[in-house]
Write a protein that binds this DNA or RNA. Structure first.
Length: 628
DNA sequence: ATAGGGTTAG
């Protein structure tokens, strides 16, 4: 019955010579060979095959499905050739797919090239293979070839090419594909539309993603998840949570992956009530914490201000990976508990987890936040020798930060001069901060100019440089920088501060008057400032003059978004509880001083998070070392 | 026969 059982060598379509195994041995490849043969004879009708062949193609498909490695696939491939089954698209498409599934993309490509007959499935599998492999060029080349062979792009190929656009964040190509989608009339297809939403969301064109999303008549869980994540990633975590509520109202039941993105949104928001709610929700769904969900929750609690809750989750996790450990270390770090962060390191090694680049960033960062200079140096020096992790810019930045805070500017400078890796924005920013503490104008100017050269489109750098000139009384230079900024049509990135009260997020911008309690807030802020000034607070007007927009300068000198949020916090949160605020950018020096005085006078503890740093204020002191 | 969403720093 079998066409070939004797051992001989054979040329596959890929022109490789194989010692062909007898079918009896090939069968051993497939674990489930017996069951699949049985089920085939007893329950399923054999597929129609070429009249001259006696072997059922389905048999080869089941062999292919059970291949464990490339070698086995090639053996099966050879047998398929030997049995003349290549002409069977059912079999050859499966073979192509199996090559792709085992990431043997080159083999797949060669085989694909040699296929005499290709149907839309063959094309999709190949396009998808390149997409999953991240090979943008070959993915598009194949896609173009497909259209040239007058095959219609279908609801399988289009999501694949959109996927590769998404992974590269290539909005231009993505919109071009969107054009193809419109022409193909497939814009109402479920998968195609979801892929478009995903592409736009990941390219941070969240409004376009939303438009498509709103027009979808059937939104499934994956699309909701993509949308929720998209909002969180593009800085609107509040909307993520709104969508999450809406999704449940629509009767869609979230799964663990959705919850990861929701947890992530809470991290970004730093809203503790929301965090608790989401945690309770996860418990009520009886979701067990896998590594990813658990790690996301550690991060959430840490960024919502409670390292202790974060640690509870951490301790309760059965499986932890490098990321879980790094997140926990970082959490202690930005809460100013450097010692605890460092204690975790040997524990992690004991568990057999090897540190990576980010682990070291977290460790060094923890050192700089807690002023642990010697410990930091030791880690920095040992990371390559002991753990094989090469120090990069980020690690150098932590060291510059550490040395700068410790007042060792000259050593920081030496480190920068001896660096072999390319210097980036963060490095110059850290060095600049150190120069400003030590009032070293020339070096500060050098750092700020480097920043400007590196990112001429970032308005923040212009503001920095002009502030340096202003502080040094170099008015002409200052004017030049401001002019350059106007000429290049750059505007300052707006800063926002928000505060969560009774499960609601209240958001403020500079001089904001949109809040319902705006009147009360301004009245209290005014009298508060008077009290603070009596206690010795001197507003840093220099900073205000150059850092805040013109209209603010005139009428509302003291209406920074942080100050508005704090004042509202004093009104709306019960005494004895800490006031927690979050800002999307760094808190300026003036506000830092302001908050210190507020915490001294009102005896309230205040926790400020700016981007991903925490400042704990208590009775007029800040835990994380003064930077201003 | 082929298909999508998730974790860390800066």
């Amino acid at each position: 019955m079998l066409k070939l059982t004797k051992t001989r060598t054979f040329l596959t379509a890929n022109h490789e010579r194989f010692r062909l195994l007898p079918l009896s041995q090939l069968a051993a490849i497939a674990d489930t060979q017996e069951t699949s043969l049985k089920s085939q004879t007893h329950t399923q009708k054999p597929l129609e095959s070429h009249p001259s062949l006696h072997i059922d193609p389905k048999y080869f498909v089941s062999v292919l499905l059970n291949c464990k490695n490339i070698f086995q696939i090639k053996q099966a491939h050879a047998q398929i050739v030997a049995n003349g089954l290549l002409t069977n698209l059912f079999v050859s498409n499966k073979l192509l797919y199996i090559y792709v599934q085992h990431k043997a993309i080159d083999e797949a490509h060669v085989f694909f090239g040699g296929m005499r007959e290709k149907d839309p499935v063959s094309w999709s599998v190949m396009v998808g293979g390149f997409a999953k492999d991240g090979d943008f060029v070959k993915c598009f080349r194949t896609f173009k070839e497909l259209t040239r062979c007058s095959v219609q792009p279908d609801n399988y190929t289009l999501p694949f090419v959109l996927r590769v656009c998404r992974d590269r964040m290539d909005l231009l190509m993505g919109s071009l594909v969107h054009g193809v989608v419109l022409k193909s009339g497939l814009c109402w297809d479920h998968f195609v539309c979801a892929a478009l939403v995903d592409m736009y969301a990941k390219c941070r064109v969240i409004d376009d993603a939303r438009k498509l999303f709103d027009d979808m008549h059937k939104k499934d869980l994956v699309t909701w998840t993509v949308m929720i994540d998209g909002y969180a990633e593009s800085g609107n975590a509040k909307e993520s949570l709104v969508l999450f509520d809406w999704m449940r109202e629509e009767g869609i039941v979230p799964d663990k992956i959705t919850m990861v993105t929701v947890v992530n949104a809470c991290s970004k928001l730093g809203a503790m009530h929301k965090a608790r709610f989401v945690h309770d929700f996860i418990c009520s769904m009886k979701f067990s914490l896998n590594v990813i969900l658990g790690t996301a929750m550690i991060d959430m609690y840490a960024k919502c201000g409670s390292v202790d809750f974060a640690r509870e989750i951490f301790d309760g996790m059965r499986e932890k990976n490098v990321i879980s450990w790094s997140v926990m270390i970082a959490a202690y770090g930005y809460h100013g508990q450097g010692k605890k962060a460092l204690d975790l390191f040997p524990m992690m090694l004991n568990c057999g987890i090897m540190p990576n680049r980010i682990t070291f960033v977290s460790l060094l960062y923890a050192c700089s936040h807690a002023g642990l200079v010697d410990e930091g140096f030791e880690l920095f020096n040992s990371m390559w020798d002991k753990y094989g992790v090469k120090p990069d810019v980020k690690h150098c930045t932590c060291m510059v930060d550490l040395l700068g805070r410790a007042g060792r500017l000259d050593e920081a400078l030496k480190l920068i001069e001896n660096m072999t890796v390319e210097k980036d924005e963060g490095l110059w920013t850290a060095f600049l901060a150190a120069c400003r503490i030590h009032k070293h104008v020339e070096l500060a100017e050098w750092a700020a100019k480097s920043l400007l050269l590196l990112q001429p489109q970032n308005p923040g750098h212009y503001v920095l440089l002009s502030n340096i000139y202003a502080n040094a009384g170099m008015w002409e230079d200052m004017a030049k920088v401001r002019n350059l900024m106007t000429k290049r049509n750059l505007k300052k990135i707006p800063g926002w501060t928000w505060i969560e009260v009774d499960n609601k997020i209240h958001q403020f911008s500079v001089g904001d008057k949109s809040h319902p309690l705006s009147k009360e807030i301004y009245v209290l802020l005014k009298s508060l400032i008077e009290k603070l000034e009596l206690a010795g607070y001197v507003p840093d007007t220099n900073f205000v003059l150059h850092d805040v927009d013109e209209e603010v300068k005139v009428g509302m000198l003291y209406a920074h978004s942080e100050k508005l949020a704090i004042t509202f916090g004093l009104i709306a949160t019960p005494e004895g509880t800490p006031i927690r605020i979050t800002k999307n950018l760094r808190v300026c020096g003036d506000c830092h001083t302001f908050i210190k005085f507020v915490s001294a006078i009102t005896k309230r503890s205040i926790i400020v998070r700016d981007s991903n740093r925490f400042h704990h204020f208590n009775e007029g002191a800040c835990s994380c070392g003064d930077y201003w």
